[in-house]
């Protein structure tokens, strides 16, 4: 473990908590893409299947349980409890256009063909694009609640910090996992224009609005 990965995991945890609190406190999931949350739940489910038979550390196991539980709790809030506030008119990204390419790619480019490894590879590719329905929804509505922009910033920062963690591990432990690094860079790049808007607008106290 290194400080970059720890900060990344904390950002990730903060993002998930901020989203849950936003929906719970405002009793509304307006502006939140349920489709992205479905993809995230799928990412954690396929990535953490080893939760039950490989023990890395208490921290590792606890975080996996938290990510799994919170992602399903978020789905419950969006699609069951506050279903009436779910903005399905704007959450229209065709996630099959993400799922199918990720399945194909994970069969073409993977470290090995064991079921756990294939699921892990699939989850890495899917995580890279899981935010697209949310970013698409924000572009359709042209704006996002400030709390939602904080959620997106923390979520984007988590994988950006993981890239720093991979650079650090490359030089200190000769560790490198090309699949995770390439997908992580793509994932972070997808947030680039959002980061720009967030820093130039939200941090200056303005609303998060896309230029018309």
């Amino acid at each position: 473990m290194n400080i970059f990965r720890l900060l990344g995991d904390i950002c990730h945890l903060v993002a998930i908590i901020v989203l849950l609190l936003k929906i719970w406190k405002t009793r509304s999931c307006a502006g939140i893409s349920g489709k992205s949350q479905i993809l995230f739940a799928l990412v954690y489910t396929t990535r953490y299947v080893d939760l039950f038979f490989t023990y890395v550390s208490l921290y590792n196991s606890v975080m996996k349980v938290i990510f799994l539980a919170s992602s399903y709790a978020t789905l419950y809030l969006i699609y069951v409890k506050f279903k009436a506030t779910y903005d399905f008119n704007h959450d229209t990204f065709r996630i099959e256009f993400l799922l199918i390419p990720c399945v194909i790619l994970s069969l073409l480019i993977t470290h090995d063909y064991s079921p756990v490894e294939l699921l892990w590879t699939f989850s890495i590719y899917l995580e890279a694009v899981a935010i697209l329905p949310q970013l698409f929804m924000v572009s359709k509505t042209g704006e996002a609640e400030t709390i939602t922009s904080h959620y997106l910033f923390a979520l984007g920062a988590y994988r950006a910090l993981y890239i720093v963690n991979w650079i650090y591990r490359y030089y200190t432990e000769s560790f490198i996992d090309g699949i995770a690094v390439v997908a992580g860079i793509i994932q972070t790049i997808l947030y680039a224009d959002f980061f720009y808007l967030y820093i130039t607008k939200v941090l200056k106290g303005k609303d998060f609005k896309l230029p018309a």
């Binding site: 990965r5 990730h12 890395v56 550390s57 590792n60 990510f67 892990w120 560790f175 490198i176």
Partner: peptide, 10 residues
């Protein structure tokens, strides 16, 4: 530069 056998990242 290999990748580790065990996945220790979240």
């Amino acid at each position: 530069k290999a990748k580790p056998a065990q996945k220790d990242e979240l």
